[in-house]
Design a protein around this nucleic acid. Sequence first.
DNA 1: GACGTATATTCCTTGACAGGCATATGCCTG
DNA 2: CAGGCATATGCCTGTCAAGGAATATACGTC
Lengths: 103, 103
Amino acid sequence: MPTDVFAVLAEPARRRILDELRVADRSVGELVVALTISQPTVSKHLKVLRDAGFVSARTAAQQRIYHVEPTQFAALDEWLAPYRRLWTNHLDELARHLDRMEQ
Amino acid sequence: MPTDVFAVLAEPARRRILDELRVADRSVGELVVALTISQPTVSKHLKVLRDAGFVSARTAAQQRIYHVEPTQFAALDEWLAPYRRLWTNHLDELARHLDRMEQ
DNA sequence: GACGTATATTCCTTGACAGGCATATGCCTG
DNA sequence: CAGGCATATGCCTGTCAAGGAATATACGTC
């Protein structure tokens, strides 16, 4: 996890790329068409996403087909996990609260 | 959700603040001590977190006690949801793969 | 091997944002 | 109401990253 996961996702264009790739693998050209962003800009964002481990690419002739790499999303999920308790598992929250009170 | 959730979390100092507040509510001064960041900087980050709905504060004499507000974390979780399938499927595939190898 | 397509990279400019410092505001105590 | 503490805000500057335009690289085709 060299690059900051959140910094990478902070860019809206990159999230749009991920949303697109989540549905299906895409070539750079397809992303350019789908997102109406210039090709160099898309390539640069893809580089950032690649370096951060969010996507990877396979070569098919002149094209590069990108696909989502789940690992970094799992990392984000892990970061979120301790906060998840705050809004989902109210019983856990209550239990911890009672634990504190018992001491 | 006026401000971008990811942009807010992109700042490491803000995540440290949230990690601190997740454990327990804290006054600004306590955060300054705990994180070794200047008071104005902490206050500015808290303002960003407040405006984005990540935290809120109650007034206690001269102090302001901050606490985590779960809503935005839930929003983040919702964003993550469709991607979650990606890596749970991935784990399933890995499991099947290992099953095959065992035979 | 020249050419066309697909993608990556470089250079440059511009805008946003973080941090330091100084200062303002709010609140309590004597 | 003066003075001190806790927090917020304003100003300034440096940094960094995004986007546009031009160009480089890789690959296939004729």
